[in-house]
Structures are given as C-alpha cells and as structure tokens.
Amino acid sequence: MEHLVLFSIIGAVLSADITMFGQFMISRPIFCGPLFGYFLGDIHTGLWLGMIVEMMWVNAIPMGVSVPVDLTMMTSLAVIWSCSLFQGSQEAAIFALALAVPFAYLYKEVDLAGRLFNTKIMHWVEKGVEQGKEKRISQGIYLGLLFFFIRTSIMYGLLLFLGGLLYKEMYSYLPIQVIIALKKSWYYLPVFGFGAVLYNFKNIKIPFIKKQND
C-alpha cells in the first residue's frame, strides 16, 4: 500500500471519466482493472476481476438523472487490495471484490451528495451571469471538477487504507470452507456474468428478416 496517494489520484482521474469529463471509457472495469493490475505486477487478476464486473454490471450506465454505482471504484479497490496484499491468490481476489461491492455502493451516496452540492455551485454561476460576471461559467466548471477530484481522491485514499486493513484482517480469519468456495467462485462468477450478458439478448431481432416482414 506504499502507493496509496498515487493510486487515489489515478482512481479519481479514472472515476471522473464516468460522468464528469470525456466518457472515454477508461473508467470501465475491463480497462481500470488490468491497469491497476499492471501497476502492481499482476495483470491477470486485474483483468479477471474487471471481466467479472464488466459482465455482471453490463447495463450500469449514467443515463438521465440515474446515478449508477461506481464500478471503477469497485474494481480498483478489489484489484489494489488483492494484488498488493495477497498477490496471485484467486480466492483472496474474489474476497476483495465481495468486500469492494458495498464500499462502491457507499461511495455512490457520497457521489449523490457531491452532485447535490453542484446545484449550489450552479446557482452561484447563474447569479453571476445575471450580474454580468461571465467568468463564473468557467470557474463553476473548474470548481465542479475540483470538488469531484478532491472528494473522490479522499474516498479512494480512505477506502484503500481502512478497507485494506479490514480486508487483510477478515481474510486471515476465513474458514477453509469459505476459502474453497471463493476459489470456486473465481471460475463460477464469469459464468454468472455470461448469463447476465445473454439475458440482454433475449429480445434480439434479426434486421434482415424484419426488413422482409416490413
């Protein structure tokens, strides 16, 4: 965990891609998982966890006012914990993911509060424009980004550190049956993911046939 600050900053930059800036998909688990895995010398675990999250949460996208769970944080926490504390252990990686899921949902609440705070900045910009202070438009945008970056980096730092301690402690007390089950889950979870992905195709239409029918 010696790169805690660096990983918190990288994590915040990746999470910003979800809604705040760009949407280049660098926030998707299939990219950020192996990225952190590569930094920690275990790209395999990163890729595997990223693949599981990508498939199971295939429909989690920020549409309209819906705020989805931060999959970037979920994957990043799991990969960083498992690769830095129990590198190469499949069961430890799955346990890290099981622990990262509630933390990601916890972060969603923080994110919601942050977006509510954005409303206050928006009103401040609005008043500024009414008074002829046009610079507030750019300032509002940069403030929005800055507050997002600060709150997300702090959350990454806290969760990486405190969650990491919790993860290490809990993992050492797991009974052997649970360890065996976690090892099995390493192979079973992608299959659950495949099922979740295929469910999306249940209403698929073949365009050429449809054209003929028309």
Binding site: M20, N118, T119, G140, I141
Partner: peptide, 20 residues
C-alpha cells in the same frame, strides 16, 4: 464538449456545461 457534465446537477443537469 468534453466538459459538458463537469457541473452536472440534479436541478438543471448539463446547463452550465452547455454554457461553457
């Protein structure tokens, strides 16, 4: 245009991003 949602808010969503 990459900054469209930098000040995304529940009240007017992308309004400030559009102004920017």
């Amino acid at each position: 245009t990459f900054f469209l949602q930098a000040l995304w808010n529940f009240e007017r969503l992308q309004n400030i991003g559009f102004l920017y």
